[in-house]
Each structure stands twice: as structure tokens, then as C-alpha cells.
Nucleic acid binder design. Structure first.
Length: 425
RNA sequence: GGAGAGUUGGCCGAGUGGUCGAAGGCGCACGCCUGGAAAGUGUGUAUACUCCAAAAGGGUAUCGAGGGUUCGAAUCCCUCACUCUCCGCCA
């Protein structure tokens, strides 16, 4: 959620940024927001004034009763009736204006950072860092990962279907162990980079889902446990960022760097075809996430660190990757800037998105009221960032495809201490 | 799932209809005292919105959340959430 005061102060920047996202009438929308906010202030001032009169009158009535002037008190009571009516009208108006303002604000996405390229679709994304070495060439007989899974019997989709439904893979034997090894490896690396590990609840309540913006608009993307009104998390970002909801943090405690492994549940059915085949897109997958809460002036430095962290992971895993700087049109609603990481899956001959690192600036913290006290003793909104490090299912797929030989899959060197075996065969 | 007891400021804790944003204590900050420290002592110590060009200074709201009664609610009534104790079930 954008800050109204910021919109007032930097309207030109906001208009230009939103137009970059393709919102042609950005200025109109922002003007409407400012108008509603003016109305809100106005109404509140009026309402406060009436309330003050009411309060004063009530005190006087109390005093009159005490001094035994019941008749005067009763007369005053009658007069207060009008004030009350007036106050009710104003309060209703205030409520409705606040709701309208909030609704408008919720419709407006974050203002992209100035280095975010203009553009409408993924074709306009900038390749920030390309893979400069040669891409791996596999023999004609090379298999896509969904065939490798079957060949070595390490992931069983049919059993997943039997137990849950389509899109719920069941990992077996060395498959399960490789998955667990990756999780462990990613967590260890994140902890070594200074993160505090969190193991959060995998179901969250409504307030939490609202905090990170899954509700109200993306309701359909989450599994909803209606009986208890809880939602299965679509990413660890949801429970972990909400740790800080409505908190005022100490400046010297910042930045908070957290990491968490969780399964992620996504309802979105998606289309059928090779894009969603195998592990490319599933309803449940594992992911290690990093969440950072920082002072505004440090957030871009931290963003770079996070990008660097993911880069190093991919290099350690020996996977060909590239980094995209998303264009304004492809940017997530809440993000000011996002870098996507894609890994080359050699048998599918396709780049797969495995990580997305974003700075939300104050967009999330404004909605969640995450603040810190600065040295002047004033509260300010923090910046929030997050990134996947990494999304497991696709990394798993890429490892299988890129490291396959005639009759095995070789485990990347760095993972061997974690798996305890050197190849899948 | 059944029965009962709770939820007050950073923390502890008082407060059963008015003068209560809230006693008292602890903690914290600053000052005095001291050679320095402790003790002692004094002052201050929430958040949001808002009025004012700004500062100073006002106003409004907030005692788990939401609604209600009343001229007036931390205090009375209703609904919900959470915590604790006992019983049941259970990894």
C-alpha cells in the first residue's frame, strides 16, 4: 500500500512510475486518493470537534448531578441529544470515507524503482546477467526430468494422485533424500550468511494473509481450511514477514535477516502442457525463503547481497543461470524492483524460474505497520525484502536433467556430504 | 469436545459508571548528589490520526477485538479471539 503522504510529496515520481506499469490514468487515480484523504481529514476534524463538545457536556452533567442540580442536568441531557445525532452522522461518514480511501489505495501497485525498465510483458525484461559460458549439450538420448523420475523411481506422481490429487508429487528413496539435502544445504548457506532460521506455522489466519496481500484479491491462489478459517501458506514469506506486523522495532536491531524452509501450497490450476509437466509447476513444493527487514537507506545494499547470495548458490550447484531485471509490466503488484533467476534445464532446453528477489520498500510495511524508531525518536516505516533461496522442485528438476548420464544422475559435489550418495542409479 | 478463571502501558499491578491515558512499583532516559560508582533524589517516559506555515500548544481515539446500554464505560450487557487450570481424546 502506498503512503498517502508520499503520494502528496512525490506525486510526479509516482505518476511516472505507475505509468511505466501501463497505468495510463495514474494521475487521475492519485488525485482521487488525495481528494479522499482531504475529505477524511476534514471529516475527522469536524467529528473530533463534536466529540469534544459531547465530552465536555457529559462532564458538566456529572458535575451538576453532584452538586444536586438535577433539573439543570436533565435539561442539558436533552441538548446533548442533538450533538449525538450529529456525531453519529459524521462518524458514519468518516468510516465510509476511510473505507473508500483504503479500497482505492489497495488497487494501486507499488511504484517501480527508477532503474526498472518500462515494458508490458516478460519479453521486455532485461537480462541483467547472462550465462556466458556454453550451455550444456546433452546427447539426443537425454531425458526430460519427468522421465528420469520414473526411470529411477524417485518421484511418483501416480501415488501423489492416489493420495491427494494431481500436482502433489511423492518423493521416494534417493529422491526424498536429495530433496532433503537441498533444503539442508540452502538453510545452512542462509544461516552462514547471517540469517536466523525460522520454522513457522504452515497455516495462517486471515489477518496474516491480509498482511502480505494474499487477501483480499488473491484468495483463489490459496487453499482455505474453511472450518477453522485458516489458509495454507503459498510461501514462507507470508508467516515470516507477518512476524513483524504491527511492531515498532529498535533501530539497532535492524536489519532482521530471517530464513525459513516451508512447503508451499498453490491452488492455481494452470494450463496443461509442457510448461506444467513434471515438477515444473505443482500444487505443493518446497522452498527456502529469505526475508529481510531493514532501514530504508540500507535496503538496496541488502538487495544486492541477496542477489549475490542466490548467485553463489547456483554456482556452487554448477547450474547454468541467468538473472533478469523484471520490467514494470511484469513486476509483482507489491514490488518496487525484482530480479528473477532462471536456471537452464538442458533436456527441456528451457529456462526455469527458480528464484525471485524483491525489494518492496515501504509497500508491505505500510500495510502491515512495521516501523522502527529512529535516532530522533520518530517512528518510520521499514523496508521489507524477500527472495527465494531457492524453489526446490525446479532446482531438483534441473539437477536431474543437467547431470544425467547414460545410466545415472550424478549428484553435484557440494551436495554429496548432504545426500550421502554420489549418484542416483 | 465439556467445566471454570483470566486478558489493563516496555514489564508487574491497582482500578466495578464521571474528575482515568489510567494509582503504585519495576525498568528506561536525563539531571542533582559523588573523586567515581552504588544508594538517595528530581524530572520525564505509549501509539495513531488530526488542528496550527512550523515550533509551542490543542483536539480525538485506543485498558484483547467488535458491537450495545448510558448524558458519560477500563468498569455494565452481547458476540468473538486468545491464555491458564481441570476433565475427555490424542502424536
Amino acid at each position: 500500500m502506498l503512503e498517502v503522504n508520499n503520494i502528496r510529496k512525490n506525486k510526479d515520481i509516482a505518476v511516472a512510475g505507475l505509468q511505466k506499469r501501463g497505468i495510463v490514468n495514474a494521475e487521475e487515480i492519485l488525485d482521487e486518493i488525495i481528494r479522499l484523504d482531504d475529505e477524511r481529514k476534514n471529516t475527522q476534524t469536524q467529528s473530533d470537534k463534536i466529540l469534544n463538545e459531547l465530552k465536555t457536556a457529559s462532564k458538566e452533567i456529572g458535575d451538576l448531578y453532584k452538586s444536586g442540580k438535577a433539573a439543570e442536568a436533565n435539561a442539558k441531557k436533552a441538548m446533548v441529544g442533538d450533538l449525538k445525532q450529529e456525531s453519529t452522522v459524521l462518524e458514519d461518514k468518516l468510516k465510509s470515507v476511510v473505507i473508500q480511501l483504503e479500497e482505492k489505495l489497495l488497487e494501486v501497485p507499488n511504484v517501480p524503482n527508477e532503474i526498472v525498465p518500462a515494458g508490458k510483458t516478460e519479453d521486455d525484461n532485461i537480462i541483467e546477467q547472462d550465462w556466458t559460458s556454453e550451455l550444456p549439450h546433452l546427447p539426443e538420448s537425454a531425458l526430460p526430468h519427468w522421465d528420469i523420475l520414473t526411470k529411477y523411481d524417485i518421484v511418483d506422481f501416480d501415488l501423489g494422485v492416489k493420495i491427494a490429487g494431481s500436482g502433489f508429487p511423492l518423493y521416494k528413496g534417493k529422491g526424498a533424500k536429495l530433496q532433503r539435502a537441498l533444503i539442508q544445504f540452502f538453510l545452512d548457506e542462509a544461516i552462514a550468511a547471517g540469517c536466523l532460521e525460522i520454522l513457522p506455522p504452515h497455516l495462517v489466519n486471515e489477518d496474516t494473509a491480509r498482511g502480505t496481500g494474499q487477501l483480499p484479491d488473491k484468495e483463489g491462489q490459496m487453499y482455505h481450511v474453511t472450518k477453522d478459517n485458516l489458509y495454507l501458506i503459498p510461501t514462507a514469506e507470508v508467516p515470516v514477514t507477518n512476524i513483524f506486523r504491527n511492531e515498532i522495532l529498535q533501530e539497532d536491531a535492524l536489519p532482521y535477516k530471517l530464513t525459513a524452509y516451508t512447503p508451499c501450497f498453490r491452488r492455481e490450476a494452470g494450463s496443461y502442457g509442457s510448461d506444467v509437466k513434471g515438477l515444473n509447476r505443482v500444487h505443493q513444493f518446497d522452498k527456502v525463503e529469505m526475508v529481510v527487514v531493514s532501514k530504508p537507506e540500507n535496503s538496496y545494499e541488502i538487495l544486492d547481497e541477496m542477489v549475490d547470495h542466490v548467485k553463489q548458490l547456483l554456482e556452487k550447484l554448477n547450474l547454468p543461470y541467468r538473472i533478469l531485471r523484471l520490467c514494470a509490466g511484469d513486476l509483482g503488484f507489491t514490488s518496487a524492483i525484482t530480479y528473477d533467476f532462471e536456471v537452464y534445464s538442458a533436456a527441456q532446453k528451457k529456462w526455469l524460474e527458480v528464484s525471485s528477489v524483491s525489494n518492496f520498500e515501504t509497500f508491505q510495511s505500510n500495510r502491515m505497520k512495521i516501523r522502527y524508531k529512529n535516532t530522533d525518536g520518530k517512528s518510520e516505516l521499514v523496508h521489507t525484502l524477500n527472495g527465494s533461496v531457492l524453489a526446490l522442485a525446479r532446482i531438483f528438476a534441473a539437477i536431474l536433467e543437467n547431470n544425467q548420464t547414460e545410466n545415472s544422475v550424478e549428484i553435484p559435489e557440494i551436495l554429496k556430504p548432504y545426500t550421502g550418495f554420489e549418484r542416483i542409479n
